[in-house]
Computed example of a mutant assay.
Amino acid sequence: MRSEHGDRAGWGLKTAAWGGLLFMHAPILVIFLYAFNTEESAFSFPLQGFTLQWFGEAWARTDVRDAIWLSVRIASLSTLIAMTLGTLAAAALYRRDFFGKEGITLLFILPIALPGIVTGIALLAAYKMVGVEPGLLTIVIGHATFCIVVVYNNVIARFRRTSSSMIEASMDLGADPFQTFRYVVLPNIATALLAGGMLAFALSFDEIIVTTFTAGTERTLPIWLLNQLSKPRDTPITNVVAMMVMLATMLPILGAYYLTRDTDSVAGSGK
């Protein structure tokens, strides 16, 4: 039933919506505030002052820089693998119906649907079975398993919105498969592919559960943060690094949203 104000939401609904947003994001705002606090104690309130001291101290620490660089490398490699395999899988599955297609689709989506601890244990067992020691390579493979899902979902949704007649016309006019992909297919899926890649990077950058089982002696940034919980004297620096992680994951997600906000069929857009 339509309200007397048309389609506008009432004050009760608006209050509930803003209250829900505040409930979800208040802890993030607390971390942001304490990253600038002058006090070294964990969480003294009210804040005693404003300082940028902890940012300089955090960047001066080699363990922080090493953890950041390792996480960037892992996220970049995982995203590259996910974009390649996810796009190929979407291209192979979007047009043809065959026996077992739904099962294959389920296998692609399963890694992100399973609890992270299950995926981590399964990967660790598989690595031990083939005699591979945990390290950079095993983390990248583990992250790529669930990063493929977001790329696949975005790209296959865009493929379904792409007219097959354009591809057929390109082939009829003498273009080879590579030229058809470069000049027809890629321009149509570019934003969905980029959005999927940005989401994959964000997921990989802050992943900790799967990483814990596959990292061995490597320390990514989320693992570094987890280890810092037992060091209360480093709390200000930990707050600064936590803020950096949140920004590093929020920006790609916002970018992916703006790339796909004008589409209503891209998986995960949630319109």
Rank of each mutant, 00 (worst) to 15 (best):
M1I: 04
E4L: 11
R8C: 04
A9K: 14
G10N: 10
W11S: 12
L13G: 09
T15S: 13
T15I: 00
T15M: 11
A16D: 09
A17M: 14
G19A: 10
G20W: 08
L21F: 14
L21T: 15
L22S: 10
H25F: 15
P27C: 01
I31C: 05
F32I: 13
F36L: 10
N37H: 08
T38D: 15
E39G: 09
E40H: 04
E40V: 00
S41T: 05
S44W: 00
L47C: 09
G49W: 02
L52I: 08
F55I: 08
G56T: 07
A60C: 01
T62Q: 11
D63C: 02
A67W: 00
I68H: 06
W69V: 07
S71D: 15
A75N: 04
A82G: 14
M83Q: 06
M83C: 13
T84D: 03
G86N: 02
G86C: 02
T87E: 11
D97Q: 09
F98T: 12
E102G: 15
G103V: 03
I104C: 03
T105S: 04
L107D: 03
F108W: 00
F108C: 08
L110E: 07
A113E: 06
L114D: 13
G116W: 01
G116F: 04
V118D: 09
I121S: 06
A122W: 00
L124T: 09
K128W: 10
V130M: 11
V130G: 07
G131S: 06
G131P: 04
G131Q: 11
V132Y: 14
E133C: 05
E133N: 15
P134N: 14
L136K: 07
L137Q: 04
T138D: 03
V140I: 08
I141F: 07
A144K: 11
V149Y: 05
V151P: 10
V155N: 13
A157T: 04
A157E: 05
R158S: 11
F159K: 08
F159H: 01
T162Q: 10
S165R: 14
I167W: 15
D172G: 04
L173K: 06
A175N: 13
P177F: 03
F178A: 07
Y183L: 10
Y183A: 01
L186R: 13
L186S: 12
N188M: 06
T191Q: 13
L193I: 06
L193T: 05
L193K: 05
A200P: 09
A202G: 13
S204E: 11
F205Y: 09
F205K: 02
F205E: 15
D206S: 08
D206K: 00
D206Q: 07
E207R: 05
E207F: 02
T211A: 09
T211K: 00
F213H: 07
A215Q: 13
G216W: 03
T217P: 11
T217K: 05
T217G: 11
E218M: 08
L221V: 09
I223Y: 13
L229Q: 14
K231W: 08
D234A: 12
D234T: 06
N239R: 00
V241T: 13
M246G: 14
L247W: 00
L247Q: 03
A248D: 15
A248P: 03
M250F: 12
L251D: 11
L251Q: 05
L251S: 08
P252I: 01
I253L: 04
I253Y: 01
T260L: 05
R261L: 02
T263R: 07
S265P: 05
S269A: 10
K271D: 02
